[in-house]
């Protein structure tokens, strides 16, 4: 549980540190008609999007908290410190960040149709993924369970990768699911 909390906190904080300034909350920019304003800077658009939200200092402290919780849990669980495990862990962590970001971006297109109503939709998606992603979803089965790892992938934020990484998952290949 502690590892799960630490993992979801870290995912959250990587997002805060690397995709702040409405880069992740792109529905705000779409809704306010500010998306094209990224073009007023003399640099490629991809570079603007990739670097604009990078704020390692302001988002850094919370990131340290997440890593500390994870390290504590990791010590308690007696998990192996092998290159393979560390690699799988890093890939899963980054994949989880991509899953959250991609889900926020996907839902943000609503703002093209409903600029005012959809302006904050990325925030709502972010909050929902953040809240659900912290909890173990083991008790949820059926369509709801499938939905939480597909349509609304809260299970991919931390629950499913953590299960695989700590060896709780019945599927040995489970650590590949999130990536």
């Amino acid at each position: 549980m502690l590892f799960l909390v630490g993992c979801s906190t870290t995912v959250e904080r990587i997002l805060s540190a690397a995709f702040t300034h409405n880069v992740s909350h792109i529905s705000r920019r779409i809704g306010r008609g500010q998306f094209d304003h990224l073009l007023v800077h003399p640099q490629p658009l991809w570079l603007t999007l990739a670097t604009e939200g990078f704020a390692p200092i302001s988002g850094g402290f919370a990131l340290v908290t997440g890593i500390a919780i994870m390290s504590w849990a990791w010590t308690g669980l007696g998990l192996p410190l092998t290159l393979a495990w560390t690699g799988a862990f890093a890939v899963n962590l980054l994949s989880s960040v991509c899953v959250v970001l991609a889900t926020m971006f996907l839902w943000s297109v609503v703002a093209f149709w409903a600029p005012v109503a959809g302006e904050e939709i990325s925030m709502n998606v972010h909050d929902a993924l953040g809240s659900l992603g912290t909890f173990p979803l083991d008790g949820i089965g059926g369509a709801m369970g499938v939905g939480l790892v597909t349509v609304f992938p809260a299970g991919l934020v931390a629950w499913m990768p953590v299960r695989a990484l700590v060896g709780v998952s019945a599927e040995p290949w489970g650590f590949l699911l999130t990536p």
Partner: peptide, 8 residues
């Protein structure tokens, strides 16, 4: 077409 040169 010359966006970056122009906006600078």
């Amino acid at each position: 077409r010359d966006r970056m040169r122009f906006v600078a």
